[in-house]
């Protein structure tokens, strides 16, 4: 494992820790999109179907369990926790997530490495992950006064994507068995580009020491 991959995994982990911290200690999910969180839970469930059959490393298995467990519990917090669910901004989180799920599933049926149940769902999870952030970005644009934890959450998530691309580039040149298919490159890059606009405003507000506010 190279440094980019490890740093990417750690920022991904950090983003989830930040989110759980917000919900568990502050008992708030203000500014967080339930749609995006449900999509991520679906991403992990469909991707890690191999968790009990294909062992890669203890690190991988532990991380998979972590991502599955946390993504499902975040959805639970937002839907059912007595206090947390009250801060959910339902009126602004209106993006229809099945508009993302259906095309991703159709694409996975058409473009995949192997037409098997697990392979199609694994490919589906890659496509869906690429676009799962969209409802969150839409909600951020509609939110006045984005709080620090929400801003940091999206920042860490974007950093994770950027670092994974560096990891792929690194592996492409150093690992002869490693050849990523064009479609996975594409979905990864699409996902990272989605954050570009957010990053611009995040860094600007940080440099000016201002509150993060996205233009409408």
């Amino acid at each position: 494992m190279n440094i980019f991959r490890l740093a990417g995994d750690m920022t991904h982990l950090m983003s989830i820790v930040v989110l759980l911290l917000k919900m568990h200690t502050i008992k708030s999910c203000a500014g967080i999109s339930l749609k995006t969180q449900e999509l991520y839970a679906l991403v992990f469930i469909t991707r890690y179907l191999d968790i009990f059959t294909d062992f890669v490393s203890l690190y991988n298995t532990v991380m998979k369990i972590f991502f599955l467990g946390t993504s499902i519990s975040i959805v639970w917090y937002m839907r059912y926790h007595k206090v947390v669910k009250q801060s959910y901004d339902k009126d602004h989180d209106t993006f229809r997530h099945y508009f993302l799920i259906l095309p991703c599933f159709l694409l996975a049926l058409i473009i995949n490495d192997e037409f098997t149940f697990r392979e199609v769902l694994w490919t589906f999870s890659l496509y869906l992950e690429a676009v799962a952030i969209i409802p969150q970005l839409v909600l951020l644009q509609r939110t006045k006064n984005i709080d620090n934890l929400t801003g940091n959450y999206v920042f860490f998530l974007g950093a994770y994507r950027g670092l994974y691309i560096l990891n792929w580039i690194y592996r492409y040149f150093t690992d002869s068995h490693y050849r990523r298919k064009g479609i996975t490159w594409t979905s990864g890059i699409v996902q990272t580009l989605l954050y570009a606009d957010f990053f611009y405003y995040y860094i600007r507000s940080w440099r000016r020491n201002e509150r993060l506010n996205l233009p409408a």
């Binding site: 991959r5 995994d9 991904h12 191999d50 059959t53 294909d54 062992f55 890669v56 490393s57 991988n60 991380m63 998979k64 991502f67 694994w122 994974y164 990891n167 592996r171 690992d175 068995h177 490693y178 050849r179 990523r180 298919k181 996975t184």
Partner: peptide, 10 residues
């Protein structure tokens, strides 16, 4: 079992 390259990532 052998795991495809991209599948060793998260």
């Amino acid at each position: 079992t052998k795991v495809a390259a991209a599948k060793d990532e998260l």
